[in-house]
């Protein structure tokens, strides 16, 4: 883990409040594992402001990509960052997804939660002996579905669900997922679930992994101060008690989570 001073390579607005931030971060890019996150100092905020945590969408060729949504004062201030600016990024942080899977890999995501799943998909596709994952992506409307093309470019089969039916299946992402799981059960196909997104989606996915003999890997968001395990602000309840999301997570085994 280092506090790397990173040059901004690009910063593109992709609409609906989402942006890709690409940073030149050779040290971190070489070390990052899917599901880990970085803790970003937002230059336009006062120097004492807390850092903001973001998952890694991609780490490749010395660059780290973050996909973020503007939700409050920190992310709004981050919008002002321009290519060529330098920003301070702490990472790699936390424990990511396990990089081994001998069964079908099903990724389930929503909103910016697709970010760590994209990095995971890239690593799975590139590695020998890992399954080609499938993605189930959900959102309120078509505008909330992010990076679908990027997944398809990797050769990942993408199934879409929206609450309003503006894209894919009308309903929850778990509807098409349950159809496939029923099919898997009929044929005795084994699978693991990898999920990141809003809490209710994660809870629904965790329920489909616990007690079924299948594994689930759930990436949680908790409000953080330090991001390195030093302050105990980011508590996620687990079977072990009060766990720190930033260091014991952000990816937890579904069976360990207490909801």
């Amino acid at each position: 883990m280092t506090d790397e001073k990173c040059k901004v390579v690009s910063h593109d607005d992709i609409g609906a409040g989402y942006r890709y931030l690409v940073l030149e971060a050779p040290r971190m890019a070489a070390e990052l594992e899917p599901g880990q996150f970085v803790h970003v100092r937002v230059p336009a905020l006062e120097p004492s402001a807390l850092r903001r945590p973001f998952s890694v969408f991609d780490a490749d060729d010395g660059c780290v990509t973050v996909l973020y949504k503007t939700v409050g004062r920190g992310t709004a201030a981050l919008n002002a960052v321009r290519p060529g600016d330098t920003i301070s990024v702490l990472g790699p942080l936390g424990h990511g997804f396990p990089m081994k899977c001998e069964v079908e890999a099903l990724l389930v995501g929503g909103g910016y939660g697709v970010a760590p799943l994209h990095f995971l998909a890239r690593r799975f596709v590139a590695a020998a002996g890992l399954p080609r994952p499938r993605l189930f992506i959900g959102g309120r409307t078509a505008a909330d579905l992010l990076a679908v093309d990027r997944f398809r470019q990797l050769g990942v089969e993408v199934t879409v669900a929206t609450n309003d039916g503006s894209a894919g299946v009308k309903g929850l992402v778990t509807d098409p997922l349950d159809d496939l799981l029923a099919d898997f059960r009929r044929h005795g196909t084994r699978f693991e679930l990898f999920a990141c997104g809003p809490d209710p989606m994660l809870h629904a996915v965790a329920l489909r992994a616990t007690g079924t003999g299948s594994k689930g890997w759930i990436s949680m968001d908790r409000h953080m101060i330090c991001g390195v395990g030093a302050c105990y602000a980011c508590i996620q309840r687990t079977v072990r008690g009060n766990s720190r999301c930033c260091i014991e997570g952000p990816v937890f085994a579904a069976e360990d989570l207490v909801w």
């Binding site: 506090d3 004492s48 807390l50 301070s88 330090c226």
Partner: peptide, 9 residues
Amino acid sequence: GTATFSDPG
């Protein structure tokens, strides 16, 4: 104390 959170330097 708190300063390290934003800047470990």
